[in-house]
Design a protein around this nucleic acid. Structure first.
Length: 278
DNA sequence: AAACAAACCTGTGCGC
DNA sequence: TGCGCACAGGTTTGTT
């Protein structure tokens, strides 16, 4: 499922394929993906607009337009953004088909239709896309300030994994990377966030940044359902480097003694090593 | 404040 | 082989 690293790989692809291009013609196949506003609002907001920049905050893609407005795309669980040739066929579940002034097309594809596309006014983001205004820092974009992280961990008395999944705490971590980060930091997903101690807090800060960066370098994670692909349709490779997620029974690569165990934490399938994650 | 559950969807993979 | 059903997951919303 797309988390910050996967969305970053998409962002890089869009930045090279969209920047400076204009949307020439926009078709919306299914109203559900434009539910925040409307089909006509998306078409009016994109058509004729030139892309100035492609940004990202957490799992949210933000396409800055020369009209002063921005397009927000969220992939949720099964969304894909593809750049294809003008005469290419559109895959099943293509809900937005936007032709560019160079003849190529940007497609938004999403079988489960949880994802969305909306054009909004960045000056009114708190009103128009409130969840975007509530996001915490993005470790890939902004880095991670150790003092701020420590204060946050201590003030929010929660289990570690649910806190990592909280987008207002840190933006961009989802179920896969929460597991991988906890394992890298050798911390139990259910460990209380307050009272970790400086050494563990440092390990956690490093793990967050390192795991996310390594995942971007590997092109993101594509699980067996193959939902995530880049704008060129290619899957990522980081799943090969997963040490715990979706690997029940595997021998722990850190301690060599534990077996990866599956459990449920915060309503999410969770994997950890009971021996070295404390 | 935090934990929990349900809702939104549909393709996949399992058990029988 | 075919059918039915649980499951997956990001986020919001509502309840305890």
């Amino acid at each position: 499922m797309p988390e910050a690293p996967e969305v970053e790989v998409v962002r890089l692809g869009l930045a090279s394929g969209l920047t400076g291009r204009r949307f020439a013609e926009v078709a919306v196949g299914r109203d559900r993906v434009v539910r925040r506003t409307s089909r006509t609002a998306l078409i009016a907001g994109l058509t004729g607009a030139r892309v100035d920049e492609v940004d990202r905050h957490g799992k949210y893609l933000i396409i800055g337009l020369d009209t002063g407005r921005s397009a927000m795309i969220h992939l949720r669980m099964s969304g894909q953004v593809l750049l294809v040739d003008g005469d290419a066929g559109a895959p099943a579940h293509t809900h937005v088909d936007a032709r560019l002034d160079d003849g190529r097309r940007m497609l938004f594809v999403d079988p489960r239709t949880f994802g969305e596309v909306v054009v909004f006014d960045p000056m009114r983001v708190a009103d128009e896309v409130p969840e975007l205004a509530r996001l915490g820092p993005d470790p890939l974009r902004d880095g991670l300030d150790l003092a701020a992280l420590r204060a946050g961990l201590r003030s929010r008395r929660r289990a570690l994994k649910p806190l990592l999944l909280d987008q207002s705490f840190i933006a961009g971590i989802g179920n896969i990377y929460a597991d991988e980060i906890c394992h890298r930091a050798r911390l139990r997903p259910t460990r209380r966030s307050d009272g970790l101690g400086l050494a563990a807090e440092r390990r956690l800060a490093s793990a967050i940044v390192d795991v996310l960066r390594e995942a971007v370098a590997a092109g993101g994670s594509t699980l067996s359902d193959a939902q995530y692909v880049g704008v060129d349709g290619r899957p990522g490779e980081f799943q090969r480097e997963h040490r715990v997620h979706a690997r029940p029974g595997a021998r722990c690569s850190t301690c060599g003694r534990g077996r990866i165990r599956r459990s449920t934490v915060a309503q999410r399938g969770t994997y950890h090593c009971p021996v070295c994650q404390r």
